[in-house]
Design a protein around this nucleic acid. Structure first.
Lengths: 357, 357
DNA sequence: CTGTTAGCGCGTTCAC
DNA sequence: GTGAACGCGCTAACAG
């Protein structure tokens, strides 16, 4: 009852394993009669090549891996979707490994990938480059996306979080808001820290005093942060959350407290996950084409796999784009009104660009 | 520059490969001195076991695969998240293979998994059991989740789509709605067809005439269906969409047209994806604990892997639960008001149960 | 306790 | 054109 192997097929077709291999891989030349006999045996025995064995012998797995901190929220699912698209387009399988909150776990995960994948996309916002490099012995091509302290010696893609955050704050300042609070991401997270830095920097020149509420990138933390702040009597006129999920939590907290958005408090998020334009008011945010990013990452990884040293140390920086929606418009009529419901508001303002370094 | 192999380590530590293997796998007994020499060599050479080779020899991959139709929307990402949780808990890797819209693609995908995984969770709502079984030669444990025509001879989990749909319609009828339209899922999709059947059946007894709008499970299709319907002059007083994404699309279309929900038109979805409770009005839907489902699926699969014939042909049926939110309450004050904004509305009504067959 | 060796399933030189 | 044999890297008997 065990699955047939290539030898079973060879025996059945009365040829050698070499011929079977040739037929199946379409390499070399085989006489038509032999070819037919092999094909016949293959489907009689329902033979399916054992990809593990094949990998061992070819040292190609036709699989790429992705190391992620976690799988919550829409950011990572969108990213995976994009990566999957690219992987499939190149005939590759995708193996995901998540929930690596610290450097050690991530390192272990990376190591456990040896012999399983041809290349890796690593998102580890908590990992510093040094610790990462240590894990990355071997010659496995790796594309880094650990926003922040990037290892200049390795191919990478980073999001310009600081610039994005500054854009967000400047947008709010431009709206005349003067009490701008920030809901931060988890401490130790490089992306979160860069966004916080951008917030602080943008504020620095304006005389507006910074007010930071602790968050951890989850919707619940955004909700709690705002609820607590309101309870303490604080009344900012704008909130910049370090990501969209927290911004959504903030939006809900405001609604529960009866505080109108954007009239009383404007809200800006970061990432532009799909729900950003579905909530009401729709969320102003810094757009990252997440799925596109995932796709692009895999494509670069494929390039690395095919030509390991071609684009070494190519560090790419993506600048997020400001998308203005109802949660931060001066126009009060935009708030929760049916007219504003269309998925793509006509008044969307886009800024920013993608630049290569 | 090539990665060190176990033989390099053995040579370096001046022992045999067997001893290295013993030390690394903690099996058998090894003298402390030898053990130390091995460990030393391992980290000098930065040796990492080649899991591919190990798999070939142990015939275990420590990986489970999941075959999906696509990766759009929140349903699949939630499912993957749940599966990942369970996989990690069991020390397994997860490999995803998506975008298999027809039986052939899915079959190919399943076959290509041989030698890569220890077991498979297959979601293929387009696949009939016969064609599936053909692909599933070998002894690879497979857990089916192709809602609908389940192969009674294989372990499976199905969602009681028909019952769920009936519950939805009955809920709307109970609200006094008499013109209930249905936005269907893609034709040929078993889940979609079962939901449509449930809709029709629930209506049959009530004298209400069925009205079906074509959809394909995407938000856009729900939006278009409703827009077109309104344009044609039709005015239902309720819409039951075959999934939440289409329901969200419907909600937006209604808003754009200035039709009030739930006052004029109530809307009910299916799945209870995370955004269901974030849109306004919050969406009444049939809850499936998606992440829990994914987790449970992997756990059953693990059981199958450990004892292949233990629970054979255990067919499980999950009954979705009605969750009433703002989009279908009689109470008009619930609509878009701040008071209704809290994530978990106090007035939530839950029905249904999970049953084992 | 440790070393030798035979596979795991397949691709791939080489001679024939 | 075709086949025999070796190697991929590792585990698991089996001897010693």
């Amino acid at each position: 009852m065990k699955p047939a192997t290539i030898r079973d097929v060879a025996r059945h077709a009365d040829v050698s394993v070499a011929s079977v291999s040739r037929v199946l891989n379409g390499v070399g030349v085989v006489n038509e009669p032999t070819r037919q006999r092999v094909l016949q045996a293959v489907d009689l025995l329902k033979y399916v090549p054992h990809s593990g064995a094949r990998s061992l012998s070819t040292s190609r797995t036709d699989t790429v891996g992705v190391i992620l901190p976690d799988l919550f929220g829409e950011f990572f699912s969108e990213l995976i979707r994009g990566m999957d698209v690219a992987a499939r387009a190149h005939g590759l399988h995708l193996i995901v490994s998540s929930s690596h909150d610290d450097a050690d776990e991530a390192s272990a995960a990376i190591r456990s990938m040896r012999g399983r994948v041809d290349g890796l996309v690593v998102l580890s916002p908590y990992l510093n480059a040094a610790s990462l490099t240590a894990s990355l012995a071997g010659r496995t091509p790796v594309l880094l996306m650990n926003g922040g302290a990037m290892d200049a010696a390795r191919p990478s893609i980073v999001i310009d979080n600081r610039a994005g955050a500054m854009t967000a704050v400047e947008h709010l300042l431009g709206l005349g808001r003067r009490r701008i609070a920030h809901i931060s991401g988890p401490s130790g997270n490089l992306e979160a820290e860069a966004r916080l830095a951008g917030y602080a920097e943008a504020l620095a020149g304006s005389g507006v005093v910074a007010q930071v509420l602790d968050g951890d990138f989850t919707q619940g933390s955004g909700h709690r942060a705002v609820t607590r702040m309101l309870a303490s009597g604080e009344r900012p006129d704008a909130i910049f959350a370090a990501n969209d999920m927290m911004a959504v939590g903030a939006l809900l907290a405001l609604q529960e407290a009866g505080v109108r958005c954007p009239e009383e408090v404007a809200v800006v998020g970061f990432d532009d996950v799909p729900i950003a334009e579905l909530v009401r008011p729709a969320l102003t945010t810094l757009r990252i084409d997440i799925a596109g990013l995932g796709k692009h990452a895999v494509e670069r990884l494929v390039g690395l796999i095919q030509a390991p040293d071609s684009e070494e140390a190519n560090n790419e920086i993506l600048r997020p784009t400001l998308v203005v929606r109802g949660s931060s418009t001066a126009d009060a009529s935009a708030h929760s009104s049916p007219a504003e419901a269309k998925p793509t508001a006509p008044g969307e303002i886009l800024m920013g660009e993608i630049q290569d370094v």
